[in-house]
Design a protein around this nucleic acid. Structure first.
Lengths: 337, 337
DNA sequence: AGGGTTAGGTCAAACGTTTGACCCGGAAGA
DNA sequence: TCTTCCGGGTCAAACGTTTGACCTAACCCT
């Protein structure tokens, strides 16, 4: 029943070597010359005492915390769950711990205060960080950071997905089914993803030779989606109601589906719906939702991996290449005649 | 453009005092006697230099990391999102950082290795940790821990919700609507919550003078729920099909609803469904799902708060009192005649 | 005048690692 | 025989805070 922390010194004493040797053994220092027998004595002592390096001391000395931060707007949004998973896996593979914080209740500023100095080696900002002078603050603390799936004006340190192509894929799917009046339920106007998806929508409509249908914005929540869909349907002149809607985000889409039903219409008979981001959940909705799957986990992974070898001053502007795929389910069908 | 880290010594030099003074000012040491004017000089220097305490050095000295860990099975399960929110808020209020890790891809053991020693001051285990000797391992590292909504055999260090009452509430709701054949779609057999909810179901059925309907187990995922519901309906003899199902978890319930539809039945006309745990999402399902709301965020909050002042050897066995409430939506209705 | 108290600080030893510099004995090369 | 080199380690100075102990001048009390 050991209660007192075991330190390098304890291990060194037991193995009858210097602390330095133990340290180098633990860290697998390649410059270390050591007899096999000695190494085994050290390893045995470590095992016997149950030694684990003290992270604080190590960080203090090396000024690396072996920890990355990830800041997201809200844990309840399952889209971020995917990103977290990818980021966590990559961090683990590199021997790092990932600490995920959310904006719920406190801003990034307050969060950074709690994080303090020297606790994390890099910060990933997912879908958040409109704050422009935040960048300055992070730069001053000399901590590398990277925006995920989001760009701030003037800030060149991000990796994003090809939202335009995703939007195009969705629109082309609808066009292929025969739809001509395709509306767009966009994301919140400050969100960069919303802008990119809207741009993709516009381009695809133009390519198809179709006029842009009505466009409404909503935040990325079911409630927002429901309200926006209600507006969209109410505003459409009789006989010109869109036969399909491209929704910028799956969370909105869940609400949007309810909006359609509330208007007394049926999916996909009267209105087809397709949304960006695939979730497990999508196949269990009623009807199952057609989506565009984006490599979200890959985004998290790539973010961590870039952060790993990032110069605090480096510029990163990457569009992550990765499979973007339309998952056809029941919520899209040919338009009514 | 400062690049070099600002330390106590820099602040002390600028304010022309000893580092000790700065330290005590930063930490608001009440035993410190200091002239108002000096204090202001120190604060000004801190502000001017943008000083932030180095967490590693501080932890090393005080052996407190000001960080709590929370370990969950999976970020994708929105039930945990609620718990995380509560825990994070409480941690923030106490000036702590919360680091949340998931079991996806790596077990708790590997996670603890990455965490190392001295990085966290306490660990919350939510819905995970069947591992009995894990407790021993944590105890040896002298780090306080607590199970959330989960009990391991023989382990007396947990806070749980009143799942029995939640189950009873659900069953009573169904009975009140006139149902007599009420089935139970339980959780996975190793999960403690599953056992508690099943017990609640049994007790409530007994109290109502009803025979227990068929019972099937499923894990807490939509896919599992769908499969289990299919079994449940297929196994029921003609004419004795249950008219209502109490589902142990909302994630399973989402799949279960699909299972009902797949069998060619309609909710709630043919089968009523009620599940434990409320989510935003529930009101947007089709039909909207009747649920029992549990104080999940409160559970997270309470967990952190207990962890805060916990003796590593203390025993904790608490059933969190908090509002448990039936949210009646469209998925439950009187049985067919 | 001498002792005690207080306000307002200063001093320095930890905390547990890491890491460049150094050391020593023996073998090999000149 | 002398130098060099190498294997196999040892030494000790940081890293940035915290905190108990200590110091000094000024003031008060008797």
């Amino acid at each position: 029943m050991k209660r007192t922390r075991v330190t390098l010194a304890d291990v060194a004493a037991m193995a009858r070597v210097d602390r330095a040797v133990v340290s180098r053994v633990v860290n697998k220092d390649p410059t270390l010359n050591i007899r096999q027998e000695t190494r085994e004595r050290v390893l045995a002592a470590i095992e016997e005492l149950g030694y684990r390096p003290n992270v604080a001391a190590r960080s203090l000395r090396t000024s690396r915390a072996h920890m990355f931060g990830l800041f997201i707007p809200d844990f309840a949004n399952p889209v971020y769950a995917e990103i977290i998973k990818g980021a966590e896996a990559e961090a683990a593979a590199r021997g790092y711990v990932l600490v995920t914080g959310s904006a719920t209740g406190a801003g990034l500023g307050e969060y950074m205060d709690r994080i303090g100095q020297g606790r994390i080696d890099g910060l990933l900002l997912a879908g958040t960080g409109e704050d422009a002078d935040l960048a300055a603050q992070l730069d001053q603390a000399a901590i590398p950071w990277l925006m995920l799936n989001n760009r701030s004006q003037g800030v060149k340190r991000y990796v994003i997905l090809d939202d335009q192509r995703a939007a195009a894929l969705a629109v082309e799917h609808l066009v292929g089914l025969g739809h001509r009046r395709i509306a767009h339920l966009a994301g919140p106007s400050r969100a960069d993803t919303a802008a990119r998806r809207s741009a993709g929508y516009s381009a695809a409509m133009r390519d198809a030779g179709l006029p842009e249908g009505p466009i409404t914005a909503a935040d990325y929540t079911p409630a927002g989606g429901a309200a926006a869909m209600a507006r969209l349907l109410a505003d459409a002149p009789e006989g010109e109601r869109p036969t399909a809607v491209f929704v910028a985000n799956v969370a909105s889409a869940i609400g949007a589906m309810e909006g359609v039903r509330a208007a007394g219409l049926e999916i996909p008979r009267d209105v087809s719906i397709v949304a960006v981001h695939d979730l497990d959940l999508a196949s269990y909705l009623n009807p199952a939702l057609t989506t565009v799957r984006m490599p979200l986990a890959e985004l998290g992974r790539r973010g961590v991996s870039l952060l790993g070898g990032l110069d605090p001053d480096a510029t990163v502007a990457e569009v992550l290449a990765g499979p973007i795929e339309l998952i056809h389910r029941r919520s899209t069908a040919p338009p009514p005649r």
